[in-house]
Write a protein that binds this DNA or RNA. Sequence first.
DNA 1: CATATTTCTTAAGAATTTCTTAAAAGGAGG
DNA 2: CCTCCTTTTAAGAAATTCTTAAGAAATATG
Lengths: 233, 233
Amino acid sequence: MGKPCILVVDDDKEIVQAIAINLQKEGYDVRKAYDGLQALDIISTQSIQLVILDIMMPNLDGLSAVLKIRQEKNIPIIILSAKSEDSDKILGLSMGADDYVTKPFNPMELMARVKSQIRRYMTLGDMNTADKPNILKTGGLWFNPDTCEVTVDGEPVKLTATEMRILELLMRNPGRVFPAEEIYERVWNEPAYNVENTVMVHIRRIREKIEINPKEPKYLKVVWGIGYKIEKI
Amino acid sequence: MGKPCILVVDDDKEIVQAIAINLQKEGYDVRKAYDGLQALDIISTQSIQLVILDIMMPNLDGLSAVLKIRQEKNIPIIILSAKSEDSDKILGLSMGADDYVTKPFNPMELMARVKSQIRRYMTLGDMNTADKPNILKTGGLWFNPDTCEVTVDGEPVKLTATEMRILELLMRNPGRVFPAEEIYERVWNEPAYNVENTVMVHIRRIREKIEINPKEPKYLKVVWGIGYKIEKI
DNA sequence: CATATTTCTTAAGAATTTCTTAAAAGGAGG
DNA sequence: CCTCCTTTTAAGAAATTCTTAAGAAATATG
């Protein structure tokens, strides 16, 4: 089902970057956010399997963010904090966090804790996908990568494997425009050579299935001369 | 559901006692062990939901104990240790522990970490098969992993061991689509190499037994190019 | 408004994936 | 050592999807 995707949230971009590099070395996908609101947005629209979160941030403080994330999804949360007071740890954990790491931290220890959480989430967390699925949503278009279910305004839609992979790519990055070449390379895992047409035909078929009026697409739009995107709704 | 039961393992009886009192205050049941072998015995014979374990013990060292516990049950393990070296933490976590607390520790922090683990263990809904009779149902298809009984609309069906393991995996995650490779790895516990056919034949045999019309399966469906799933009914 | 460029549509054949069937290989129990 | 049951392998059949290519439509440009 692809590599686990981990969201790193900290207002210090350097720290985010450092953690991200380590995570990628371990084979994880990474998303980055620099404040709590951004983090919540990503969590509710993308499929995230674990959150690493600094609790001292602008906009929305970390502890509230933990609460909100808990409300929305049942994924592991690791708190990062400069506060090493026991009372802070207790507070963080009782807010719903799954682990608490104090700055400065050993990157290797953080990785070990991440792995531990992911392993637990994976091995006994299968059931939770049924309960609190990581559904990608934009407007009335919902996609559940775990069950391969796609619905438009509640109506189920049947996509083929390739169609789903394309849709997943676009929906995981709402608003971002993907050139046909990039879509091909990322979906087929092959270098793209003279494949614009191929991608286009697939786009067309997806539109036929998910759009009410394929000629005036609501979700799957084209940006002339650049590529395709899923509208961020 | 009963209160969660927590096993505390340490060769220092005073520490065990102190932790036990705290746990009982929080409303947990407690079991005590003073070395690794005793701990393993209790874990394999009693219903335990979480283990707190000192890793420096006579008879069986703590890290091996963690490994053995992991093999046997999928319950959360919190390591207690006087070693606060990062390398020790990393080792402990990668052995399969879920958290690592260094001595001396704040009892309240330990309680917070216990609660966090228990909450996750509960909400993710892993069934400790020893505890609860735990029948998986989707529509008319019932499966009791404890007694290995499978019935379709009340009619008993005889599955082989492998068939049951596959069915169990799928039924524990209704709706979720599993690629043949993943099924193989999780059922056989071996890396999957050129095994799609093997899995497929087993799927076919399961269908033959549980489906009224194997050609139009009601329960065990395929998602083209992706994998198999048990329909969520 | 005319032209050039880009995207869209369509349908058929190629390619891939899954299904079926049968038989060989592997293991457990007597 | 033999028998029976389970698991794996293999190959051809069937079903579905993917790709190609060519003409139509739409959009940008001058």
